[in-house]
Computed example of a mutant assay.
Amino acid sequence: MPADAVDINEATGVADDHELIRFSWTDPERFAEIFDRHAEAIHRYLARRIGRSVADDLAAETFLVAFRGREGYDVSQTDARPWLYGIAANLLRREQRTEVRQYRALARTGVDPV
């Protein structure tokens, strides 16, 4: 496929995720379409695991990490959701580890750092 060709999904008539990500390498604003498609699902995934307020921050950070790492995306994968869920899961684990460390510090010192 030529570099400027668009892989349009014949059923929906829109570009697939991998094409949008590839286009965003030279036109960063195209990544907003990935956000529009998947932000709600990523937020729901995180909210079920950690609560809505923290999920707001982690969902935003998921897309920031994805945007910054978009040039490393494997464009042979047409659906970006597994990649985005992986990023979200890694951020969730990091958040949970941080929370556990804070509770342990609180238990040791009896002083709430907040």
Score class of each variant (00 low, 15 high):
residue 112 D to G: 05
residue 45 Y to T: 00
residue 48 R to M: 06
residue 13 G to V: 09
residue 35 F to E: 12
residue 14 V to L: 13
residue 106 L to S: 13
residue 112 D to A: 09
residue 84 L to R: 15
residue 108 R to E: 13
residue 15 A to R: 01
residue 24 S to N: 04
residue 57 D to S: 10
residue 92 L to R: 11
residue 27 D to I: 07
residue 36 D to R: 14
residue 101 R to I: 05
residue 108 R to V: 01
residue 22 R to P: 00
residue 32 A to T: 09
residue 63 F to N: 00
residue 90 N to K: 12
residue 23 F to L: 13
residue 88 A to G: 03
residue 51 G to H: 10
residue 80 A to I: 03
residue 12 T to I: 05
residue 64 L to H: 03
residue 107 A to E: 14
residue 28 P to Q: 09
residue 50 I to M: 06
residue 73 Y to S: 01
residue 103 Y to H: 15
residue 90 N to W: 04
residue 93 R to P: 00
residue 43 H to Q: 04
residue 46 L to E: 03
residue 82 P to K: 08
residue 93 R to L: 06
residue 31 F to V: 02
residue 2 P to K: 15
residue 14 V to R: 15
residue 35 F to Q: 10
residue 63 F to K: 01
residue 84 L to N: 14
residue 40 E to K: 09
residue 49 R to N: 06
residue 70 R to A: 02
residue 40 E to Y: 06
residue 108 R to L: 07
residue 101 R to V: 06
residue 103 Y to G: 09
residue 113 P to S: 12
residue 50 I to L: 07
residue 24 S to M: 03
residue 87 I to A: 00
residue 78 T to C: 08
residue 66 A to M: 08
residue 103 Y to M: 15
residue 42 I to S: 01
residue 100 V to N: 04
residue 114 V to E: 15
residue 52 R to S: 08
residue 94 R to H: 12
residue 26 T to I: 09
residue 107 A to D: 11
residue 63 F to V: 00
residue 37 R to D: 03
residue 82 P to T: 03
residue 22 R to W: 03
residue 32 A to D: 12
residue 73 Y to M: 00
residue 49 R to A: 06
residue 50 I to V: 14
residue 44 R to C: 02
residue 22 R to C: 00
residue 79 D to I: 07
residue 1 M to F: 07
residue 54 V to S: 13
residue 51 G to P: 08
residue 6 V to R: 15
residue 51 G to V: 03
residue 90 N to D: 11
residue 14 V to G: 01
residue 71 E to C: 08
residue 13 G to F: 13
residue 55 A to C: 09
residue 88 A to H: 04
residue 57 D to L: 07
residue 52 R to D: 11
residue 109 T to V: 06
residue 67 F to T: 02
residue 58 L to Y: 01
residue 97 R to V: 09
residue 51 G to Q: 09
residue 1 M to C: 05
residue 4 D to H: 14
residue 98 T to V: 12
residue 59 A to C: 13
residue 16 D to L: 13
residue 30 R to A: 12
residue 28 P to F: 07
residue 5 A to F: 13
residue 61 E to H: 06
residue 90 N to Q: 10
residue 47 A to R: 14
residue 62 T to Q: 07
residue 49 R to L: 07
residue 85 Y to S: 02
residue 39 A to C: 10
residue 75 V to C: 11
residue 88 A to M: 05
residue 7 D to R: 13
residue 81 R to F: 08
residue 60 A to S: 13
residue 3 A to C: 00
residue 74 D to T: 04
residue 59 A to D: 03
residue 107 A to F: 09
residue 94 R to Q: 14
residue 19 E to D: 11
residue 31 F to C: 03
residue 51 G to A: 05
residue 93 R to G: 02
residue 63 F to R: 02
residue 90 N to R: 15
residue 57 D to P: 06
residue 102 Q to Y: 03
residue 61 E to N: 06
